[in-house]
Design a protein around this nucleic acid. Structure first.
Length: 493
RNA sequence: GCCCCCAUCGUCUAGUGGCCCAGGACGGGGCCCUCUCAAGGCCCAAACAGCGGUUCGAGUCCGCUUGGGGGCACCA
């Protein structure tokens, strides 16, 4: 791959929540910039004032930060090509739109939305393609200028050539040729004075020196228009890369609001800001989205640094990808297992605190090695280890009874185990396991039966971290106390 | 309706004309390990959408069909 430093950007519109698709649209240009020693920019495309939702920009910024996708220039940190929020660049677009008018490549249009709607409906009724009918295209330029000066509402439309064709290219798909006749006199500057995407993005990408435009495939059909606009200004177009969409897990149809709700029911989400609460790590999420649309031949558990080292824009795939939450779980678990103890402890603590547990840090640190490889999500620490931070446990009576034994027999086993444990100076795997295994032998029982009783007694549950290691952390005093309590419960059954 | 894009195991993908009776990962099945649950190890099932070309040779190139996706706003 060509490693000349690139300038790339993530240019979201702050119109809703940040989802997986947005995250990936940010990731790839980020990776390309880092791989080549280039620059990655965040630009907010907020030119649709009606659709802008308060807080969306903040969610975007926080999402990127959480994922570790850091940008070099952006609305909150500035940079040499600012401002990075399009509503703050009004004059730039205004000037550029009129420049196109002067060049004869665009024209003011005074048509009302009502008339345009009517025309469109008639066209559709006649099975024609809906398009601008050209009413204002033929207006005398001086006339038009006077009407604008007089304060009449107007938009500026691109004056699409009636004949000929244009060639544009997508890096992954190759060149495509489009007849100009199939293209429309698209609005570039709206009557509120703000630009449409087709003007704003082209102007900004040029002014910000963007070399590679990596964006969603919904832009593929308008790429020819974009190339027209860019060339009308006399600029060179950047490399275009269109990313395919994410499909819902079934592979039938793209992710939708309905599908997003389904995911949440299953304990999953397509929204970046939900991921942390659900116990996902940035590493896991990143790894997951990175590999939907990017083919690596082998070794697919990757950190952000691994991705940067291996990223090659030519290995992106143009076909749509169905999301698969099982794979997210896999990557998340793999990255959790790779975390250092202190790091994992710090990440787990909030989930215990969320349950109003009092966390003792040294204890937490000792628990980590026992649960690390059992965690798929960070909040899995609760079922495995919340009991460590509770003063008492409440085993269900029936869970204290070993398989194949009666309550009375189980109580007897527990009494014998208690006797052994009481005699130990302290309880740990080295001291407790050999005599208890000997007990298993002596009673002619299975280890599951004896250890199962103790597990339920000490942890209050049937699934737990390894028993002897757990008992060591709990401490002899509490272990004895809990086994005694278990015996009482069993005796009453 | 018109325009554009895509097409390898259930899913994500490797494959850039001979190295492919198609490789990896997830998921699934089996076995081993084992105090529960995991993790780990070993093994198994599972795909080139169809039809025509081009070529000595096609998963790989071309065309058509089918299927899927996207777009046709003073939204991005």
């Amino acid at each position: 791959m060509d490693l000349k430093p690139v300038r790339t950007r993530f240019a979201p519109s702050p119109t809703g929540r940040m989802h997986l698709g947005s995250a990936r649209s940010a990731l790839y240009p980020f990776l390309l910039a880092r791989r080549t020693g280039g620059t990655f920019i965040l630009r907010i495309e907020d030119t649709d004032v009606k659709r802008t939702v308060p807080g969306a920009e903040q969610e975007l910024i926080e999402g990127l930060r959480w994922l570790g996708i850091n940008y070099d220039e952006g609305p909150d940190i500035g940079g040499p090509c600012g401002p990075y929020r399009q509503t703050e660049r009004r004059e730039i677009y205004h000037t550029h739109a009129w420049k196109l008018v002067e060049l004869g490549r665009a024209f003011p249009c005074f048509c009302t939305a009502e008339r345009l709607d009517k025309v469109r409906q008639e066209q559709m009724a006649n099975k024609q393609n809906p398009r601008y009918d050209g009413a204002c295209r033929a207006l005398d330029p001086e006339d038009a200028r006077r009407r604008v000066a007089a304060g009449e509402k107007y938009v500026i439309r691109f004056k699409m050539p009636k004949e000929g064709s244009i060639q544009s290219a997508d890096l992954l798909r190759g060149p495509i040729t489009t007849d100009n006749a199939a293209l429309d006199d698209t609005v570039l500057l709206k009557s509120d004075g703000l630009p449409t995407y087709h003007l704003a993005a082209m102007v900004d990408d040029h002014l910000m020196g963007i070399t590679h435009v990596i964006r969603g495939s919904e832009w593929l059909p308008s790429m020819p228009l974009h190339v027209h606009v860019i060339r009308a200004f006399g600029w060179d177009e950047p490399q275009f890369v269109h990313l395919s969409v994410f499909l819902k897990p079934s592979g039938k149809g793209k992710m939708s609001k309905r599908e997003a709700a389904e995911a949440i029911k299953d304990g999953h989400s397509i929204f970046v800001s939900d991921m942390k609460d659900l116990g996902y790590t940035p590493e896991g999420v990143l790894n997951w989205i990175a590999l939907m649309g990017w083919g690596v031949s082998e070794g697919d558990v990757l950190t952000l640094d691994d991705m940067i080292a291996r990223f090659d824009i030519n290995n992106l795939t143009p076909s749509p990808a169905a999301i698969n939450f099982a794979k997210l779980d896999h990557f998340n678990g793999a990255h959790i297992r790779a975390l250092r103890t202190d790091d994992l402890a710090a990440r787990l603590k909030p989930y215990f605190l969320r349950e109003h547990l009092t966390v003792d840090d040294p204890t937490l640190t000792r628990i980590i090695p026992l649960i690390r490889e059992r965690l798929v999500t960070l909040d899995d620490c609760l079922p495995f280890a919340a009991w460590f931070f509770r003063a008492t446990v409440q085993p269900k009576p029936e869970e204290l009874v070993a398989k194949g034994l009666t309550a009375a027999q189980s109580a007897d086993v527990a009494r014998k185990a208690l006797e052994i444990l009481s005699a130990l100076p302290e309880i740990n795997p080295a001291t407790a396991e050999p005599p208890l295994r000997a007990l298993v032998e002596r009673l002619g029982l299975g280890p599951n039966q004896v250890f199962g009783i103790l597990r339920a007694a000490v942890t209050g549950q049937t699934v737990s971290p390894p028993l002897f290691e757990s008992m060591e952390i709990v401490g002899k005093e509490k272990v004895l106390e809990r086994v005694k309590k278990a015996i009482e419960i069993l005796e009453k059954m």
